[in-house]
Each structure stands twice: as C-alpha cells, then as structure tokens.
Design a protein around this nucleic acid. Sequence first.
DNA 1: GTAAAACCTTGATAATAATCAATGCGTTTT
DNA 2: AAAACGCATTGATTATTATCAAGGTTTTAC
Lengths: 218, 218
Amino acid sequence: MSITSVIQSLDFFSSLNKEQISTLAEVSSVNYYNKDYVLHYEKKESYQLLFLIDGLARAYKIDKYSNEIFLYYIYKNSLLSEVSNVRSDVLSSFSNIVLVEDSKILSVNYAKFQDFFLNRNLLNTEFTNEIIARSQQLQALVYREFIFDAVAKVAMTLYKDLNMFNALKRHDISLILHIQPATLSRVLNRLKRNKIIDISHGEVQIVNSLALKAIYED
Amino acid sequence: MSITSVIQSLDFFSSLNKEQISTLAEVSSVNYYNKDYVLHYEKKESYQLLFLIDGLARAYKIDKYSNEIFLYYIYKNSLLSEVSNVRSDVLSSFSNIVLVEDSKILSVNYAKFQDFFLNRNLLNTEFTNEIIARSQQLQALVYREFIFDAVAKVAMTLYKDLNMFNALKRHDISLILHIQPATLSRVLNRLKRNKIIDISHGEVQIVNSLALKAIYED
DNA sequence: GTAAAACCTTGATAATAATCAATGCGTTTT
DNA sequence: AAAACGCATTGATTATTATCAAGGTTTTAC
C-alpha cells in the first residue's frame, strides 16, 4: 500500500487534492510498530506529527510510585500527537503513549506540515477538531474521577460499554477506571447481590438497567 | 470606550485590520457583569463567543452532592467559551463559569464569527491556541489530582504560588486544591512541625524551600 | 489430561481524607 | 468593653479505597 493511499485513508486529509497529498507524502513516512511499543514519553519533544492509521494506543501518566495512570485510548483514524502551541514547530506531550495493538502509523514532519498546510490555511479545522477531541477525552476523565465513586464508575461503564467491559480483563477495566482489581470485584459482587446485574462464567449481564443507571445519575 | 477599542485591546484580534475589526464590531457587544454572575451553565448551549476583557472568572463543575468542584481560573485577555466542534455553530460547555470579580465581557455572534473569520482562514491560529490553553489547564488539573496527595498539593502551591496562597482565605485555597479546610489546616500544621514552613499571624513563610519542593517532586 | 500460569476473589488491615461538631481567636459592631 | 461574627483549628469518628496476602478458578501449554 503506497503512502499516498495511506494518507487518503485518513479522514483528516480528506479535503486535500492529489497534488497536496503528494506534497505531504514527500515529508511523511509510514511505520509499523508492535504492541507495547512506547511512541512518546511525557515531556519529551518531538518533531514529527503522528497519526494512527491502524491499531490502538493508550495515553497514560506515571505517578510517584511508578504506577501507570490511564488517561484515554486513542483510536485509529486520529491524531496521536499532542500539540501544545500552534506557533511552535516543536511538539511536546503531557502524557506517555503506548501501543495497545500492533499498529500502523503515519509520521509527518511537523515544521513542513505547518509550512505547507496550516500556514496556508489548509487543514486548520481538522487540526483544531483533533485537539478538541483530545480535550474532550480529558474532560470525560475529569468528570468520572471527580464526580464518581467506585460504584458509580462501574455502573456507568456497565451501562454504556457492556461489550467492552466483557471483552476486557478485569485488570484492564480497573486500570481504566482507576480502581484496584480487588475493589472492582467487590463492587461487582455488590451489584450482583442487589440483583442489578448477573454474572455467569465471568460475563456480566444487566438485570435491572434502570437501577444501574440511577446509581451514577443524580 | 468604544467597542472597536475593546476589540483592539484583546491579543486575540491583534492580527485583524481596521476593516475587519469594524466588521467584527457589528456582530459584537460589550457587557459588564458583577462578581458572582454565572455566565454559563454546563451543558447549556450558547450562540455567543465570549471573551474576558477585564476581571476574572472561575470554571467549575457540580458533583452529586451539589458541591462545587473547582476546575481552573480564566484570566482576562482570553476566550471564556468552550468549543466542542469547530464545524458546529453551537457552543456547548462542559463546565459552569462564574465571575470571581466584576468583569467586562465581549460577546460575539459565533455563527457570524465563523462566516467572517474562521471560514475565511482568519484567526485560526489564535482560536486553536485558546483551545489548547484551556486543555492545558485541564491537564494541569489532572496532573495535580491524580498524582498528588493532600500534602503534595499544598507543598506545590506554597512553593509555586506563595503570594496567592497568602492572599486567599484558607477556604478558597482548599476549594482550589480539592481538599477540606480541616485537611488544609492539618497539613500546614504538619509542615510547620517539620520546620519546613513557619506561620505567623496566618501568613505562611517558607523555611526550608528544598524540603518543600522535595515533597511533591519524586 | 494434568501441571503450571494467569487471573479473580476474598479477608484482614491500613491509609487517607471527609465529616461533624466544638472550640479558639481575631475583628467588627454596638 | 462586651457581644457577635467569620474563620481557622482541633478532636473524634467514619467512609472509602488501597494494600497485602491467601485461596480459588479458569486458561494455557505441553
């Protein structure tokens, strides 16, 4: 698959014409990395704008006990890099980014990208929308962490993302929700005891959907 | 003071020429509000892009016990509104925004602003940078709340913002740091007992600056 | 099919900070 | 000068969740 067609596969670049895409292709490269490869360490500077073409990534921070603090997932067809100032040609990120799956990544020289596109008023909307999307993921995180206790977090996740919940291991869920596996287990137990959910072979089923929702809505 | 000169006083619009400023002036208005006026309720939609010209605002959320959760301050010379999608002509915000001081606010019709400026590739950089600035405030919040315990929060605030700390009431500090006044009092006591700070007449002085910093740096 | 490994649950205990309530202490107010 | 008020502090208790460790259970691998 050529780099041009990779670029065309991203919604981000859908407004570009053939010529613009080949200009972009000249300052870009496509790379494949394996699961668990760390793309970005927090505070480290970078000169490449990265897009996730295929695969899945996870943004996280490290606390003082070296525990990982999950921030959010980054899905394919979106910008991986964090932008801290549009005017600077250096990218520096707040979080670490690691691949959750084997992934395909488009890497674009950021200075050239600015020259060729942003400074010529191309892709501005797309760029801003990617930044907003990332900001909204942070907002969702803030909301969950500040407003919810462990039970509410689990209730909301079960209500909104039951499939994801059942697809992942308990350990991964507890990472996402910032609770310990032991706490998750106790919360599930409580919900089961209260006949709000049922668990068979580790698979959660919702029994009383209304009650589940009521736990996290005020 | 005319609306034109108000617009010119904002860095955001410094790239506009006379004609563009008067176009903007036609779809804008300047308003004065008193301290404690709530500009924005979360989730409520708005069609006006607001800029804080003078004064100070505070963004916050409400938890299920109706407690206020402080997010960040918004300082003068910056965008007050939250943008959730550049393409939409509706603004909807994640947080509540209240004035901390009597303030002067510029209100711009957002649809017209898009027509006249963003869609003509004007002010794009400025707009994106304002969004990034807000996102970075959220990042700082996430950092403090996820990585720090009560002692680390207080230590960092004393180290970096001693003047602010001493200027505000203990109650306001504890709002900002998301700890209870009683907890703040106990933390200060501990720092004093360990000869890291000294308190006379309620005013905190740093005695051992290195030790203070060491508390929150790993 | 069984052993090993990985994962989940449970129990006991500890840590952190919240809550509730009372007391203390300066500052206004009268 | 005494009373009232606003804050800050202190003590006692509680709530929530983490931590540590020991058993279970399921999955994986040979």
